[in-house]
Each structure stands twice: as C-alpha cells, then as structure tokens.
Simulated assay, not measured.
Amino acid sequence: MALIREKRFTQMNLSLHVPSRAPLFQEAAARRQCPPPSTSMATPASRSNQFRLADFERVAVLGRGNGGTVYKVRHRETCALYALKVQHSGEPAAAEADILSRMASPFVVRCHSVLPTASGDVALLLELADGGSVDAVVGRRGAFPEAAVAEVAAQALSALAYLHARRVVHLDVKPANLLASTAGEIKVADFGIAKVLPRAGDHCASYVGTAAYMSPERFDPEAHGGHYDPCAADVWSLGVTLLELLVGRYPLLPAGQKPSWAALMCAICFGEPPAPPACAASPELRAFMAACLRKDYRERASVAELLAHPFVAERDVAASRHALRRLVAEASSPSP
C-alpha cells in the first residue's frame, strides 16, 4: 500500500498546536456599546476591497489546525462579526484563497476578502456561521433526527454540485468542514486541500486528507491503479459524514475503538459497506446511504443522482429545515 502523506486522527479531526506569532490585531480590552451583532452574511461584496486587518478586533478563537488559526472577529466600525482564517504562508494557503475568492454559492462559505499581513501569512475574511460546525452540533446534541440529516444532505449535495460543475473537488468533506447557521443553513468550508481539475472528469492522484473519511480508493491507492475519481471520493466522504450525524458518533468503528491506521484500513477497505442500523433509518435513507457508500467508486451514485434521490428530492422541505434549525439553535444555546 502506498504511503499517504498525511494522517489526521484526533477525534477524526485535525487539531494541532499552532506556534504563537506576533499579534495580527488587538483584542478588545473593553467592549464598547454596539448594536446587536450581525453576522457577515449580509455584508455587501462591494466593501470587500475596503477591508484592512486593523479594522478588526478579535473576539475568540474558533479553531486551530495544521495550517493556521480561525478567529471570530468584530469589525470595529460596523460591529459585524466574521470568521478570520489566518493561514501560514505557502502554496496551499494561496490555493485556498484563490478557490474561495471565485466561489459564489449560498452553500459554500463566502470569502469577503483576502487580507495581507505583516508576517506574510494569508488571512481570509469569511462569513461567520453562527451555529458552528456540524461536528460541534453532534458533540453537543448527539445523533440527528432523520429529517435534519435529509436537510444537511440536500444542502451539502447542492454545494458539491456547484463545486464539481466548476471542476473543484473538496477532498476533505467531514462534519468539521460543514458549517451550520441557526437559520438552518449548511455551508461547505475549509478548502485547504481542494483541487481544481484541468478538465471535467479528470482523475486525481492526491492522497492528502482526513483518513477516517477517505474512500477505499483513496485509502489504498495501489489497489485502484494509483488514481481515482475525486468527485466520487467526495460522495463517499459525505456519506460517512451523514451516517455519523445519524448515529451520533464516527460510524465505521465500534463505539470507543481507537481510530488507528490499521483499524481504519480494515474498516474502510476490507469491511462490509457501512450502513445505518435498520431500526434507526427509513428505507429511503438506507437506500440513499447505500448509493453513497459503495466500495467500488464506479458504482457509487453521482451528486446529480443523489440530489434526485427520494430521500432528498421528496423530503418535506419545511419540516427538514425546521428540524435542522431547531437542532442547531439548541446546540448554540448556553448550557444551564
């Protein structure tokens, strides 16, 4: 089996220490009176070229990863809230900035501006999803009801349809990279290892990613000719993600088992195709999951086929959106 360049296992999500650097902006020492804070989703795009790093004050750290840190920040003048992703300089950071700056979909996190820093890092000013990641929602509220899973599926598939039509493959779909809002919106985020294919339908040979959500052909490339269909790989990752939402934990290993490289290899490459428990899913959901999680990528359903699947296409949109909105709102409420 070929070596995969990066292995990321901490609770199935990467969480590595980022070396401290000189402050990029001052954190507010005392909060001035502001109107009720708004998120950045409604900020006009025409302001994007007017932003400077000094215009923002740090509110909180939202997350740390191998490439940098994501902050919650407040615009000093308008009090609007944003996410600021500060990435250490390098080719991957520049590539993500380039991809996001060209995206304009309600299902993909919006990049308002790319801000220069004195240290040479890349700082992406992003819209802030007020519900946090889907991974965090699962951590706080547990398993999703089927209606909420259907809504996440519909919106995430819409994002993948938009991306794939533009020859962009994400390659790291997982709960931590799906952001939720209290309005019941889902947005795909973190394009740090995404690729732009030279031509539609091209295969890919990049094996960097989160191992727990990799498809069999990515996990064991030598068994599949050393390359794979990246669009089909995104479908597998989304299938594992949705199954995790349904059962409330990582679904390919027994509860409590350490996600070692060997355990994941056995489960993903040699185990039975993952499926939801019969008692926890409707026939429509079970058929949908089977279409996502076929071991042979040539037999896996396409994004277009999944969008037309009854589990998604025939869902009660109002009820599924309400179920997701309620779940995210409960997870966002302060603990008593």
Rank of each mutant, 00 (worst) to 15 (best):
F288V: 01
H309I: 06
E222V: 13
R326N: 15
A329S: 14
A29V: 09
K7S: 10
A161P: 04
T43S: 10
V303N: 01
L163Y: 04
R166E: 07
A313N: 04
L246H: 06
Y250L: 04
V134I: 12
A212Y: 11
Y228C: 00
S101F: 12
R47F: 10
L81M: 11
V235C: 03
P116W: 01
G201T: 11
P23T: 11
S181K: 14
G65E: 04
Y162E: 02
D135Q: 13
K295N: 03
P254N: 06
E27F: 09
V240G: 00
L264T: 01
L293F: 10
H309M: 06
A154I: 02
S40T: 05
R167H: 12
R8Q: 14
P283A: 08
L242Y: 03
G256F: 02
G90Q: 06
A165L: 04
G239H: 04
A148E: 00
A263R: 10
A97Q: 09
R294E: 15
C292A: 07
E127I: 05
R167A: 06
R21N: 14
L179G: 04
A275Q: 15
L126G: 09
V303W: 01
L3V: 15
P37Y: 09
C34M: 12
T241R: 00
D202L: 08
A308C: 14
G68Q: 07
T182F: 03
L264Q: 03
S101Q: 15
S46C: 06
A29N: 13
F219P: 00
P274F: 08
